[in-house]
Design a protein around this nucleic acid. Structure first.
Length: 745
DNA sequence: ATAGGGTTAG
């Protein structure tokens, strides 16, 4: 009897110890060892099962956790809570809520879980509804969950109101509100709240240091750091990270060396700092020196080698990694994706045991970059839980691939849209020439309560630039000033282009002058602006100004400069720049530059030289080059050469109506009616139709569309009268018309 | 063994 009891006692002791070990393994991410231990155990009690459920869930194996939960012999309240927490940990909100509903009994843990579930899912009011009606006594944790939810959702008033009504406030309560301010970037309010707090612990101080670091104010951040009475590892790492992000890697290293206690996170942060500054060798030295490495250390190193393009070293590390995790494998996939090596990317992807949304998204974006949209879609469809990034990647992919209909289709299907989703469709419309749709979606986005960012403004402004929609462009300009995104390069540069394309070059110049700092794109936009406005001399002086300031021109700069010369008839200057770009700036001319040169020589009537340039150039010809030649043929009435240029042009653009029309007109003007007929037959053969040209204007928020030969317009007669008056005025001041202006609606 | 605030990697 006694010995039997002893055996039982020993067994109980063993189970207790093994349960403890299980929890420890789970906490340090050693899930394989935990599984082995669990399966090797002779006796298991409810606590064992609970620990294992938690172990699975905390390491991403939420399905296995559920299987064990369903299989275990007896479930207690903690088992149910653990499973709900497991779902919550893996962002499975609906599963968590479903299980919560089925719970036989609920304690304050359960209620805290469901409230957290709602707040994390953005359902703040539902959370509050449950909070107000929960039948068990509210713990501090429960209050804190609700307060934290409010604060994270920027509902500071609600958060503080609840905080003040709470009976036993602790540090977590105060820090939850503070964290909301800091994480949302509301530093001014955050600091004010910090000073109002009755007492502060290390976490409070760390939060403020974090906020200051994020705002880029390292001086104040280190002042606050110095005032912390006993800084912990988190305080040190936060400051260290701040110096790394600011590019002060030497100072970061000093902080690292000064740290009284280092843990894995400290080493990882320092390694990440070196990786960010592309000092991957130094990072690797620390990596080999550090006392213990975790998955983050390996992942940081792998992504470091990926960043500098050394995929072999990255792959070696991944192969050496003892227990591979998704993050490390995704970093590797990212490397292959960037080099378009999709087969190798897919091989790594196949080896991943638990696939999260990030690794799926990386694969999708890989196929998108290779324009393999069918495979991207296959991935997207196979993905078990799509997140907002997956949707946005697909939408941007279709837009880039010219399949705007599919992009819009997905956009309408997606459950929740963010700014990036809107940006993808808006810039997609622009890329596909649907500028009106781009602008319409900008207003729609604002109407539906989504905030545009600098990228939205840049896209919408680009739409205006292409439509020469000055009034809308000016409206966007003032919205941009109000939004606070006006100091951004992209938005500023888009403004320059918008004003220039709307013919307001002085406004473009003013935007340029008022920008806090300009980049190469700003210079290029200004140059292109003056170029299209025909101010060749100004372009040349701006070009000199920018090179004097030490800004090196690129290919785009020269497209602007050369087209300026061509528009202003400055042939010699153009030729000089063309030769100088490769000689002085070592920029190899591409098709666009040759097109400018053909245009330049062609306009000047030097057709033979233009042809010679095309025949001797070391690159493949393009539609732009032959198009420029064809236009020159019209200007200088050379139907023979026109036939040659047109034949080449049709190889590139067999279905572009305007090319055929141009050729036909050249022959018509020369009275070569046989040739005109030949072009007509050619168009019929190729199935090209002469499209009815149309244009539109906006009057009092209504769009009026005009097309040629359209007498159905209600205002046609009026328009025609005005047109006739304008034509006669133009004729009076000496303008000659190529065609009689008839039939314009 | 389960819930609320703070650090690092994809």
């Amino acid at each position: 009897m006694n010995s039997q009891l002893n055996v039982l006692g020993c067994r109980a002791g063993l189970v207790f110890a093994q349960n403890l070990k299980l929890t420890q393994l789970a906490r340090s991410g050693r899930i394989e060892e935990a599984i082995a231990l669990f399966h090797g155990m002779i006796t298991r009690n409810t606590v064992t099962y609970n620990s294992m459920i938690s172990a699975y869930a905390k390491n991403g194996y939420v399905v296995d956790a559920r299987i064990l939960f369903d299989q275990m012999p007896r479930r207690n309240l903690v088992s149910w809570n653990t499973m709900v927490a497991g779902y919550l940990h893996n962002d499975c909100f609906s599963e968590a809520a479903e299980l919560f509903e089925r719970m036989p009994t609920k304690d304050s843990y359960s209620w805290t879980l469901i409230i957290t579930c709602c707040t994390r899912n953005g359902e703040l009011d539902k959370a509050r509804f449950l909070f107000d009606r929960m039948p068990v006594e509210k713990s501090s944790a429960c209050y804190n969950a609700m307060i934290s939810g409010y604060a994270k959702g920027r509902r500071y008033k609600d958060a503080i109101e609840l905080l003040y009504s709470m009976p036993n406030k602790d540090f977590v309560s105060w820090n939850s509100v503070l964290s909301g301010y800091i994480r949302n970037g509301d530093m001014v309010m955050g600091l004010k709240f910090f000073h109002q707090m009755p007492e502060r612990d290390v976490v409070s101080w760390n939060l403020v240091v974090e906020g200051l670091v994020k705002a880029g104010d390292l001086v104040t951040a280190s002042e606050f750091f110095k005032r912390i009475t006993s800084p912990n590892v988190v305080s040190w790492v936060t400051l260290l990270n701040g110096y790394c992000k600011k590019g002060c890697i030497v100072e970061a290293r000093e902080i690292f060396d000064q740290m009284p206690k280092k843990n894995v996170v400290s080493w990882n942060a320092m390694i990440a700092g070196y990786v960010q500054h592309l000092q991957v060798e130094e990072a690797h030295r620390l990596f080999t020196e550090m006392p213990e490495r975790n998955a983050v250390s390996w992942t940081t190193m792998i992504s470091g080698y990926v960043r500098i393009g050394r995929l072999n070293e990255a792959r070696n590390l991944l192969d050496m990694m003892p227990i591979k995790n998704v993050a490390a494998q995704t970093a590797m996939i990212n490397g292959y994706v960037q080099s378009m090596r999709m087969n190798e990317a897919h091989q790594v992807f196949r080896e991943i045991s638990v696939r999260d949304s990030v690794c799926w998204n990386t694969m999708i974006s890989g196929y998108v970059q290779c324009s393999r949209m069918d495979e991207a879609l296959k991935m997207f469809m196979n993905m078990p839980k799509k997140d907002i990034v997956s949707w946005n990647t697909m939408i941007a992919g279709y837009a880039q691939d010219g399949q705007m209909d599919k992009a819009i289709d997905l956009f309408h299907q997606m459950p929740k849209k963010n700014t990036v989703s809107w940006n993808s469709v808006i810039s997609g419309f622009n890329q596909n020439g649907l500028f009106i749709e781009a602008i319409r979606h900008f207003w729609l986005m604002r109407k539906l309560g989504c905030d545009p960012d600098w990228s939205t403004f840049a896209s919408a402004l680009s739409g205006c630039a292409n439509l020469a929609a000055l009034l809308v462009g000016m409206q966007l300009h003032s919205l941009l000033l109000k939004s606070g995104h006006d100091n951004d390069f992209f938005a500023g540069n888009a403004l320059i282009t918008m004003y220039a394309r709307c013919g307001r070059i002085s406004a473009a110049q003013q935007v340029f002058d008022e920008m806090i700092s300009v980049d190469l794109v700003s210079w290029n936009s200004l140059i292109a602006g003056y170029a299209s406005n025909g101010s060749g001399g100004t372009v040349i002086s701006i070009f000199q100004e920018m090179t004097n300031k030490g800004v090196a021109p690129d290919e785009v700069t020269f497209v602007g400069v050369l087209s300026a010369c061509s528009h202003a008839g400055m042939v010699d200057e153009g030729l000089k720049f063309f030769y100088s770009m490769s000689k002085d700036y070592s920029i190899t001319p591409v098709a666009e530059h040759y097109a400018c040169m053909v245009d330049l020589l062609g306009r000047a009537g030097r057709l033979a030289e233009a042809v010679k340039l095309v025949m001797t150039m070391p690159i493949r010809s393009s539609a732009g080059i032959w198009g420029a030649l064809l236009s020159a043929c019209r200007l200088h009435k050379n139907p023979k050469l026109a036939n040659l240029a047109a034949n080449k042009l049709f190889e590139f653009e067999p279905h572009t109506t305007s090319n055929y029309v141009l050729l036909s007109n050249i022959h018509a003007e020369a009275g070569r009616w046989n040739e005109v007929e030949r072009v007509r037959v050619l168009m019929k053969q190729k199935g090209v139709h002469k499209q009815t040209a149309h244009s539109w204007i906006e009057i009092k928020n209504e769009v009026c569309v005009f097309s040629s030969d359209d007498s159905g317009q209600p205002v046609s007669a009026e328009v025609l009268t005005v047109l006739a008056a304008l034509s006669s005025q133009m004729r009076n001041i000496g303008h000659k018309f190529n065609y009689p202006l008839v039939g314009c609606g």
